[in-house]
Nucleic acid binder design. Structure first.
Length: 432
RNA sequence: UCCCGAGUAGCUCAGGUGGUAGAGCAGGUGACUGUUAAUCACCCUGUCGGGGGUUCGAGUCCCUCCUCGGGAGCCA
């Protein structure tokens, strides 16, 4: 009787007979020796079938195999330098669990992006995608660890909301007698309410933006992590951000070396990511950009090109802080040192990955935030409960939102965030 | 929404100046006792994105629509 094992555990079974279940990725034969390469989500295993060492019916089963046939194979685990992973299986039995027709779409070769996205349900089986998803999972677990260690409470905020949040596009759906409900673009406003109840909180959930964006940095559905901290000012906020981002990067570098190697990520660019991150005031950034030949004027929001010009001088993420209030959301606190600006910051990742965090100290003055809501012509009645937070025991507080897929893309060094979520939702893609 | 680029075999692509479509991979058959996206021989594969136009003749030139990619804006 053989024990069963997953491929990455086989080293512990050297010399023993083991059963492995997985799917065929490659088949090779040279007459009387055949190789079946399997994957099981933990690794790749080469198995060897020798004609005169197995019963005829087992040998003949090789001819029935196709790519992605699901198998249970049994054999002796042997260390062999010629096998990927260092171990191979000398087969004594091959059992077919599920057959696979010849027209399986993903081949061991280059494919185009559109084709791969149409076949995302199969694309996920490939080694590169497995590596990305394991790193995504590592980052998700590290996020929870980081906040748990700091005694933050995780708060789950609603996905169906009344019109509230950011200015950009909303997805709507009918909601009984209440008119339209909108898919949440942010959990922040609920996070602020929770910060007054629990002190330090974070949200971790999906958010939705009906923006007609077609770039490598945008999804219509993405996951966002939004801490909110009572009694934290904008400087506390940035310190939390740089500690947080550094923690995530170092966790992946420590625990996911194999996956980073699979992705051919240059680890030296990650190893030195640590606090503090450079802080650049918006006003200074504009001056720097003008010196570099940009046409930005004070008051403009910074474009993608401007951001790239600023990041290129640094080997770690940078903060751009205190933007003009016209360029930013209504809930950001006015800067007492320069009332044209607000106490906010973006965090830009290096190597061209751009904005991964937007954060701010929140406006805690009732009259000022009401004034801003009216200035922006936002639906005042939808914000009644949010305004009430400033009426009953208002408190200084700050928070930020980190885009999970953008962070995964940067740490993995992949070009497009569509590879950083299992089933991406984009402007023209709703399936699979 | 705007600006570029692309759409040819199941997949990845090549097809100067218009003359009736081709390569690799995949697939099929066979050979091979250590292969690594195995190798070798032979075989199969097409609504050239849709529609319209110019022409004796259009994958190729013109118009139009659709789809995809990249970027901008917006943002995380």
């Amino acid at each position: 009787m053989s024990d069963s094992a997953r491929i990455n555990e086989l080293g512990a079974h050297a010399g023993a007979s083991v059963t492995v279940r997985g799917w065929v990725t490659h088949l090779r034969s040279s007459g009387k020796v055949a190789f079946i390469v399997l994957r099981d989500g933990t690794g790749i295993l080469q198995t060897v079938l020798v004609k005169n060492q197995v019963p005829p019916d087992v040998w003949e089963r090789f001819a029935e195999l196709t790519q992605e046939t699901c198998l249970a194979v049994t054999g002796e685990v042997k260390a062999d330098a010629r096998a990927p992973g260092g171990y191979e299986l000398g087969l004594t039995n091959v059992e077919i669990i599920g057959t696979s027709p010849l027209d399986y779409p993903i081949q061991p070769k280059e494919h185009g992006v559109d084709f791969l996205l149409d076949n995302r349900h199969f694309w996920l089986r490939t080694p590169r995608q497995v590596a990305i998803m394991r790193i995504r999972n590592e980052i998700e677990m590290a996020i929870h660890d980081f906040f748990y260690q700091r005694d933050f409470l995780r708060v789950d905020t609603p996905i169906l909301t009344a019109a509230i949040g950011e200015r950009s596009g909303l997805f709507s759906t009918e909601y009984f007698e209440e008119g339209n409900a909108y898919l949440a673009q942010t959990g922040q406003l609920y996070g602020e309410a929770a910060a007054a109840a629990f002190g330090k909180i974070y949200t971790f959930g999906p958010t939705f933006r009906a923006e007609k964006s077609k770039t490598r940095r945008h999804l219509t559905e993405f996951w966002m992590i939004e801490p909110e901290v009572a009694f934290a000012d904008t400087h506390d906020n940035m310190r939390l951000q740089e500690d947080f981002v550094s923690f995530l990067v170092q966790r992946v570098v420590e625990r996911r070396k194999d996956e980073l190697k699979e992705l051919e990520r240059d680890i030296t660019k990650l190893e030195h990511i640590s606090a503090p991150f450079p802080r650049i005031d918006y006003t200074d950034a504009v001056a720097t950009l003008q010196k570099k030949g940009s046409s930005v004027q004070w008051g403009d929001d910074l474009g993608a090109e401007d951001e790239a010009l600023l990041v290129e001088d640094y080997d770690r993420p940078i903060f751009i802080m205190n933007y003009p209030k016209e360029a930013k959301a209504f809930y950001m606190k006015e800067n007492p040192d320069d009332p044209r600006t607000v106490l906010c910051n973006d965090c830009l990742a290096p190597e061209g990955y751009g904005e991964i965090i937007g954060g701010s100290q929140r406006e805690d003055d009732y009259d000022k935030i009401l004034h801003r809501i009216r200035e922006e012509k936002l639906p005042e009645d939808a914000y009644d409960w949010y305004l009430a937070l400033r009426k009953y025991g208002t408190f200084p507080h700050s928070g930020f939102g980190l885009g999970l897929e953008r962070t995964v893309a940067w740490i993995c060094g992949v070009q497009h965030i569509r590879e950083c979520i299992p089933f991406p939702r984009m402007m023209h893609r709703l399936r699979p």
